[in-house]
Design a protein around this nucleic acid. Sequence first.
RNA 1: GGAGGCGUCGCCUAGUCCGGUCUAUGGCGCCGCACUGCUAAUGCGGUUUGGGGUUUACCCCCCAUCGAGGGUUCAAAUCCCUCCGCCUCCGCCA
Length: 425
Amino acid sequence: MIDLRLLREDPDRVRASQRARGEDVDLVDALLSADELRRSSGVRFDELRNEQKSLGKLIPKATPEERTELLKKAEQLKADVKAADAAQDEADADAKRLLLQLGNIVHEDVPVGGEEDFVVLETHGTIRDFGAEGFEPKDHLELGEALGAIDMERGAKVSGSRFYYLTGVGALLELALVNAAIAQATEAGFTPMLTPALVRPRAMEGTGFLGQAAENVYHLEKDDYYLVGTSEVPLAAYHMDEIIDADKLPLRYAGFSPCFRREAGTYGKDTRGIFRVHQFDKVEMFSYVDPADAEAEHRRLLEWEKQWLTGLELPFQVIDVATGDLGASASRKFDCEAWIPTQGKYRELTSASNCDGFQARRLSVRMRDGKKVQPLATLNGTLCAVPRTIVALLENHQLPDGSVRVPEVLRPYLGGREVLEPVAK
RNA sequence: GGAGGCGUCGCCUAGUCCGGUCUAUGGCGCCGCACUGCUAAUGCGGUUUGGGGUUUACCCCCCAUCGAGGGUUCAAAUCCCUCCGCCUCCGCCA
């Protein structure tokens, strides 16, 4: 949620942010009046309750005659307090409900527009010219099947569409990627974390995934658990309801977990192979920082992502994601998109979001700086989303005979192997 | 899954049986001040969080907060119910 003080002092800023996101601007005015009602009903309750408490102190000391009189008054007050309490609860709930609908305030430099309106900030690496090399690149699935690394058919047989098995060298490749990613993150000072994949509603809502993103979240109705779409969720909720000393910041965690996504509304999109799947594993970076340090941390997360992709020797570009594609929690988002040869375009491999205090307020994670207690800032960035990274690796590093060169950083994690070779069927 | 115990303002803890004295006790830690060649020790004061009022600001005041939410009552840390979490034992199990 956003800072209510900002809403009261500068509602135009909030309206502008809503407009940029393409969200409902009237929500801001509804929220302002709900907030005023919340305040006034709170004052009313406090007054009555104060009166009730004063009266309650008199009763034990009163003489029997006075006592009867006081009890009569107290009886009436009881009803008034109860009514005022109910009114306050309702006003609180209304204001909270509206507040939770509001997305984060968009950073002023974010390009306004939809999915296609991103701005390219940087490009790295060189796109291979397969024509000049004299062969037509195969796509990741053809390569993966030949290597005995990916089995889509049996994935579909067992679990349905968008499920897969990583087999043999494919399984080894995932483990190598994960180990290399965790090693890089640990080297950079992140604490490695294996996190729960099932979380309670509070964690899911606090992280901001039950708004527009809700249709992409799996829910276990019987137990009221949500399957996380990223370990960002358990990492953000890790310090829920805590106050962290300022000198302990920044706190940096590298989470590894399975990720589950319903991929509703993507029928017919990226249907081939493992580019878009319902379940995958991911190494995610997560930072808790002083709000004043948030933008700098955002850049640092981006640098670590660039270091990772550069190490994997993948050509990629960095984009500043447009307002309409930010998601509720982010004030700004940088994606790294790797070149996918058979698609002839750059596709998202990693994503770094600055959520400022948005998640921290919802989850009540605060920092103590001297006497001041205030929400801190949370940021997250992908280090390695496994299937997409495998797609990019196979396609970009393929050789004419269908084998795949292993980038040097991964070799120590693959028993020194330099090339993955097709296997006989 | 069955039985039992527990949850108090950073940590530990008193209070809960028997409702009003709780404006929640004490210790530790921490912060400030005083004193002292330095350090240590000692003394005094402060130290939950959220909302609101007032204020240039500091201060101060009010309300809520004893795991969470309901209920009983004029009045709830205290009595009742539900839920959450932790611990012990039993059963089952990778």
